[in-house]
Simulated assay, not measured.
Amino acid sequence: MGWRIYAASAVGSSHLDKGIPCQDACAFHVSGDVLTAVVCDGAGSAAHSDIGARLIADALARALGERLGAEPDLLEASREEFFEAAADAAAQARASVVERARADGRALGDYAATVVAYAGDARRGWFLHIGDGIGVAEAGEGGAGAVVSLPANGEYANETYFLTGEGWREQLRVLEVPAPTARLALMSDGAMPFAMARGNAALYAPFIDPVSRYLATVDEDEGSRALHGTLADPRTHGITSDDKTLLIALRA
């Protein structure tokens, strides 16, 4: 059995009104049975956070995916050992943004972005998380055995943490997913109002279940296009004005 991955980002109405590009990004890497998937949300106040989100998503998916492809036993390691592997990959992703900021002659904070990511195989996995966004790994249909990696905010609800921040390592969280994942969802906070149930304890079944059933009938390209259409539907603007990113991975 392998992974089928569907992912899309859609610009929010507040950005459409101001002519601002989508500041979300997502990426994934598959090596054998190991999936590494990443969703990043660029800070709305940062001038080039769209670039930061894209650089971080791509670099983190690649760095951690290649590491786990070479050392799949890391998924069976202790929390401390996996944390170090995740931190090493995050440091590589951060370095790619540092290099870009220097080349552009801009402050690193101009590229600020959060990270929510998952790495796992057919037996188990881990979330890694800096800032907001959310990750859900379900062991079976209907949310059975769901593990949820929740957002982290600062003192105020509209504050969060970024990989580009000085204290990024202290804000890096890892969360074990001890059972096989049948359905994975990673999303930026813009998708949470309609994709998550109240209290963020589980995925919102009336939304996610029909979407997943459809995705299971089509290939990844077609499914990702359909997912983009759902996220970009003007009816979502009445729920959230933010950019929306959703990555769904199903065990084939």
Score class of each variant (00 low, 15 high):
A61C: 06
W126S: 08
G42H: 06
A197P: 08
S45W: 04
A201W: 10
Y6L: 08
A57E: 01
A232Q: 00
E84P: 02
C22Q: 05
L108D: 02
A43I: 02
Q23N: 12
I208R: 00
A146S: 07
S14H: 13
D209A: 14
G109E: 08
A90F: 06
T217W: 00
V116W: 00
V39K: 15
G2C: 11
I248C: 05
A101P: 05
E166L: 14
F127A: 12
E159A: 11
S78E: 07
E155D: 09
L186G: 11
Y156C: 05
E155C: 08
A63G: 12
E155S: 14
R123I: 05
K18R: 08
I208M: 05
I208F: 01
T240N: 12
G223M: 01
P193K: 06
N158V: 09
A252L: 10
G165D: 15
M196F: 02
A57W: 00
F194E: 03
Y156P: 05
I134Y: 02
Y156I: 12
G190Y: 06
A37G: 13
V174Q: 04
A103W: 07
Q23R: 15
G109A: 09
R225C: 07
E138P: 10
D132C: 08
G167Y: 01
D73F: 04
A46V: 15
A232E: 00
V148M: 15
A146M: 04
A101T: 12
A7G: 12
T160A: 05
T114M: 01
